[in-house]
Every structure is written in C-alpha cells, then in structure tokens.
C-alpha cells in the first residue's frame, strides 16, 4: 500500500514532467491524475525495490507515449523555417567557424547533480525555446524515442529534426553553463 502523503509529495515532480512534454497545464494535470489513479489501483505491484518516484514516472512516461501515438501528428502553427535555422548561434562562433570563447569545464556538475536540477533548468530555459524545439528534445532525451518517430510526430524531415535537437542542446548547454558559472562566482 502507498501512503497518500508520499504520493502527494511526488505530484509536483510529475506535473513538471508532463508539462515539459504537453506544454498545456490542463492536459498535464489530467494525465498526472490518470497516472496517480492507475498507481493507486495497482498499488500492490509497487514492490518498493524502485523508488516511488521512479515507479510513478514509468507509469506517466507510458501514458505520455501512448497519448502521443494515439493523438498522431502535433498541430503546430509556428513557422518551421525559424526553428530550423541555427543562425541565432552565430555569436558563439567566429567567421571561420571556431568557438569565439574558450569552452570551460563545468566546475560543479556531476551527472547526478545535473539530473536533480534538470527540470528546473529545463523549465526556465524552454520558456524561450520554440515549441517544436523543446518538444523534440523531450521526446528524444527524456522519453527516449528514436528519430524516425519524432520526425513523424512533428511532421518534419530527418534533417530538420537534427537541427531542432541541435538547437535545443545548444540552448540547454548555455542554460546549464550560466547556472554553473553563476554558482561558482556566488
């Protein structure tokens, strides 16, 4: 049996996760509710071997992928052209394509530290990211879908898909960098 208090503690985490993919608060809340109900119904199958969060996340992830597949292609109205052009990174490179500044090693982060702060950084960073770019990243890296499925869902070519992922990674890398160098200074 799962204690209700334990469950409640995980709600914020699940909502963040769902919101990253769905980008719609109502839809996110709805799927979190479904997840929790499913968890309560099958409470016995929670063995306690994995953490409660890991178990709930696996139910949520399954529901998100299922929804993605049932709903079919996303309807996105923003122009794809703006998102598949990487000229907004021009400032990072010199004219001949070398890094403008030295890439410094991040002093803070181990992988575990990064994954704990991941949602927080992603949430802030993705606010300024075009929708398709953020969604491509979540589908690829958070949900672990392969390129063909992501292309199909977002209705873009494989080349455009690569550019979306490149843009998302470049932006997130910068967001993490600001965080680590900022903390180093503080």
């Amino acid at each position: 049996m799962i204690a209700h208090a334990d469950l409640e503690a995980e709600l914020a985490y699940l909502q963040r996760y769902a919101l990253a993919q769905l980008r719609d608060r109502d839809a996110a809340n709805e799927i979190v509710q479904e997840t929790v109900l499913a968890a309560l119904e099958s409470g016995d199958s929670f063995s306690g071997k994995s953490s409660l969060r890991t178990w709930l996340t696996s139910i949520l992830r399954f529901k998100l992928i299922d929804r993605l597949r049932r709903k079919g292609k996303e309807v996105l109205f923003e122009s794809l052209e703006d998102e598949t052009d990487d000229s907004d990174f021009d400032g990072l490179f010199s004219k001949d394509g070398h890094w403008q500044d030295k890439i410094k090693a991040w002093s803070g982060p181990e992988e575990s530290l990064m994954s704990r702060q991941f949602w927080e950084v992603f949430e802030r960073c993705s606010e300024v990211m075009p929708r398709r770019t953020a969604m491509a990243f979540v589908m690829r890296e958070v949900m672990g879908l392969d390129i063909a499925e992501i292309c199909n869902n977002l209705d873009v070519t494989a080349t455009n898909c690569s550019v979306l992922l490149y843009r998302a990674r470049m932006s997130l890398r910068e967001c993490f960098e600001i965080r680590w160098t900022g903390e180093a200074k503080a």
Binding site: T54, T57, P109, S115, F118, E141
Partner: peptide, 15 residues
C-alpha cells in the same frame, strides 16, 4: 557537456 546533458535528461526521464 552534451553527453552530460543527455545522461541528466535520461535520468530525469526515468525519475
């Protein structure tokens, strides 16, 4: 750094 980012996202994705 991109590899770290990927690993962090996957871990977060698994809760």
């Amino acid at each position: 750094q991109l590899q770290l980012l990927q690993q962090a996202a996957r871990k977060a994705g698994r809760g």
